[in-house]
Design a protein around this nucleic acid. Structure first.
Length: 427
RNA sequence: GGCGGGUUGCCCGAGUGGUCAAAGGGAGCAGACUGUAAAUCUGUCGCGAGAGCUACGGAGGUUCGAACCCUCCACCCGCCA
């Protein structure tokens, strides 16, 4: 899957994949990368129990650099996560330390399978709590704070937005960029790290580090910032069709839902996603792009994209199951022609709830999680958006008959075109 | 510490005694068209079958009646110190 066998420079590859939005001196960086293994880092803050789809850009960019023969440091922000990167809208709520610690652990486990922690270019996991937890307020102010100019800190987008809003900003969040700057300095000192990657929305935080290193160590180190991906409405991606975030944690977003999210990506995003989130080579991606333009309804691009990325994140077996479930539930065939094993597997992927007995259509939709209340369920039925075993239902209060059960046990409920859930009826 | 402004449903935001479950926008959901796309148009969008219930930062109060008036509390913003 690598394409950096010395033929193509990794920077060229990143540019082709549109993964460079901003950078420090790109020529100098290109030359330095060509000279030999470089140590680089990318940080992830534990602001939730899981990383989400958008983080994949960062992780995979790091992976590309590793495949090109460089050494990644994956930083999980045990310290920065306790403080909170200022958002433009409002102050964050501080999370309890134990909670953040548990999130650090979960996020570590998510990153680990995506990078190689063995061999010559082994990645290493670091936590910024290691060099900040014991730091005294006085050393922080004398050794670090002295190198930061407040007027420059105020210029950062999120900070100035907050100052101009009626939300204001706490000293805590204002200090965030200093912590991130320290991280780069620390990793430069400990591991000779000379490149940081991150999202372009992080640019202010990224430059905090390079500036600090320049002032204290007199060294010029590098930055690469990836562009944000937005859909045709300018919305940040990572929103599933269900309206929520697409998480990397399989407990929070099932592999099936993850696969479906990618399968349903709008055509216009297919090239971006294939380049950014897969390790397919240029010829293959170009062919899929062409195919998407010529025969969009075949969804060749989305199909391959979903398969590749789900495999990266959840592994081959989960991906096979997600594909199988998708084919079973959205295939042409009659649901009753599916074998019990296939049906159960498909519904398990899509989401299967147990119920002791049958009830009205509305009750079953709520139980299956397809409606938030009975009223919501009735509304959906009234709108013609409710299906039972692929048949549109018109009476929300009708009691479902046992003869509807597939193989005597299961019901396939669907809301709208693509939200499916199953019910297993019986003791 | 002083003075002034603010806190509305997922988000933004109107509302300043009954006609307010609360305008408008966004997001979400559904339908039509399609391809399990996009765009567009339409409908919908607290809970409840309904009576009704819960809701406009929190707690009390005035009133036949409060998101709207009063008191206290919490938090936020601005100016002054």
């Amino acid at each position: 899957m690598g394409n950096n066998d010395g033929v193509t420079h990794v920077i060229d590859d990143l540019q082709w994949r549109d993964l460079i939005a901003l950078s420090t001196d790109i020529e100098a960086l290109t030359a330095e990368l060509a000279r030999g293994p470089m140590t680089l880092y990318c940080g992830f803050d534990p602001t939730a129990p899981s990383l989400h789809f958008g983080h994949l850009t960062q992780i995979l960019t790091v992976r590309r650099l590793q495949l090109a023969g460089h050494r990644p440091l994956a930083l999980v922000g045990g310290a920065t996560g306790l403080i909170g990167d200022p958002r433009e809208t409002a102050e964050r709520t501080l999370q309890p330390r134990e909670l953040v610690e548990s999130w650090v652990e979960r996020i570590r486990l998510q990153i680990e399978p995506l990078l190689d922690f063995t061999g010559e270019y082994a990645a290493r996991m670091v936590n910024n709590l290691d060099w900040t937890d014991g730091l005294s307020a006085l050393s922080f102010l004398r050794d670090i704070g002295k190198h930061f100019r407040v007027n420059k800190m105020l210029a950062k987008d999120a900070v100035s937005a907050r100052l101009n809003s009626d939300a204001g900003i706490s000293y805590t969040e204002f200090s965030y960029q200093i912590l991130q700057g320290m991280d780069y300095l620390e990793l430069f000192r400990r591991y000779g790290c000379r490149l940081q990657t991150g999202g372009s929305d992080q640019w202010g935080n990224l430059t905090a580090g390079t500036d600090l290193i320049h002032r204290i160590e007199g060294a010029s180190v590098h930055l690469l910032a990836t562009p944000l991906v937005v859909d045709s409405n300018g919305q940040k991606i990572g929103k599933s069709t269900g309206g929520g975030n697409v998480w990397l944690d399989p407990e929070m977003t099932s592999p099936y839902a993850f696969y479906q999210f990618l399968f349903n990506i709008e055509d216009a995003l297919v090239p971006t996603f294939l380049r950014r989130f897969t390790f397919l080579d240029r010829e293959e991606i170009t062919a899929l792009e062409k195919e998407t333009v010529e025969r969009p309804s075949a969804r060749a691009g989305q199909r391959r994209l979903a398969e590749e990325v789900t495999t990266l994140v959840h592994g081959e077996q989960e991906t096979r199951q997600a594909i199988g479930a998708s084919q079973a539930l959205f295939g042409r065939g009659d649901l009753s022609s599916l074998t019990p094993a296939t049906l159960r597997a498909a519904l398990s992927e899509a989401g299967l709830a147990q119920v002791p007995g049958l009830g009205t259509v509305a009750e079953l939709f709520r139980t299956a999680g397809l409606a938030s209340s009975l009223g919501d369920a009735r509304r959906t039925v009234g709108e013609g958006g409710a299906y039972l075993n692929n048949q549109r239902v018109s009476d929300a209060d009708a009691v479902v008959d046992a003869s509807e059960l597939l193989h005597g046990r299961w019901l396939v409920l669907r809301r709208g075109k693509r939200t499916v859930a199953g019910l297993e009826v019986g003791p």
